[in-house]
Write a protein that binds this DNA or RNA. Sequence first.
DNA 1: TATTGTTATACTCTATAACTATA
DNA 2: TATAGTTATAGAGTATAACAATA
Lengths: 167, 167
Amino acid sequence: MSDGGAGPAELDLRQDSLGYAIKRAQVRTYEVLFATLGPDAISPARMTALSIIGAQPGINQSALAEQLRVTRPSMVKVIDSLEGLGLVERRAIPGDRRSYSLALTEQGRRELRDMHEKTRQYEARIAERLTAQERALLISLLEKVAVSAVPPSAPELAAGKAEDQGP
Amino acid sequence: MSDGGAGPAELDLRQDSLGYAIKRAQVRTYEVLFATLGPDAISPARMTALSIIGAQPGINQSALAEQLRVTRPSMVKVIDSLEGLGLVERRAIPGDRRSYSLALTEQGRRELRDMHEKTRQYEARIAERLTAQERALLISLLEKVAVSAVPPSAPELAAGKAEDQGP
DNA sequence: TATTGTTATACTCTATAACTATA
DNA sequence: TATAGTTATAGAGTATAACAATA
């Protein structure tokens, strides 16, 4: 084959690929998310951080970093920005002066409620072609993928390429 | 609520969220992908570019950029790196000296075949908890999400935050 | 004029390594 | 010694703007 082709579609990596189907859906949902939230929205990782702090007030940065799957240094910047926006507070903990207790400010709670309303629209849009049953089924099937086993030594290998967990 | 909490889990953005379920599954599949491919693998975007060039030999950079959903300047770097690795060639087109005809080299074809074998393992791993029927169902449901309508003016708003399309 | 590819530049996000303070 | 947070630095990936060559 002198034209540089690799032959028929057998070698098309996108053909019958669950991984590709997930990635494509995720890219599209992010397009819808950004369009729904508007240009001034905080990033998905920040949204999730805000949501976790709201749901688990008092959590510290290390535990939050673990849940978001980012490193501690990366977490610092996220909290810095959320604090700079007046959405989150670092509060001193009486018993342990090494760490902070993270908490939402009043403005943070307002922002979270507003985000919750906007993400309801977003959720409706990305599921517009699904019945309620299909949507629930899709979520449960995705859960099964999300708990698939990572091969040995995977965390290390994947370390440099990880992505944050976002809505 | 003086502890900074936002109330009960109603405001947990990750609760009953299709968007979050998709993102979580995608993050996990990438962990498995990187672990399966090993540390020296080319990036998912490069893999997809290679696959598209293999399936559509002669495609030019602009058309490829469109399929990968990246800008032309970004495409230049991807092709530069694939050419630097000896996997892809820019060939002159007799009729139009503005653009190149992209084609795989022999090494590029070998690389693509090798990637195809590795991604088979990867696909098996991420689907390990699914039956064949569930896997097919999941893909078809994800397709419905991937074609969900982007709200008005979405492409512009999402432009600065887009991600590449990967396997 | 429109299209293709390129360069220059900058931004966001993430990581690793080394450090300080505290336990 | 171990843990929490921080700083400094670097790398990958993406974008926009401006430009040259060609159609």
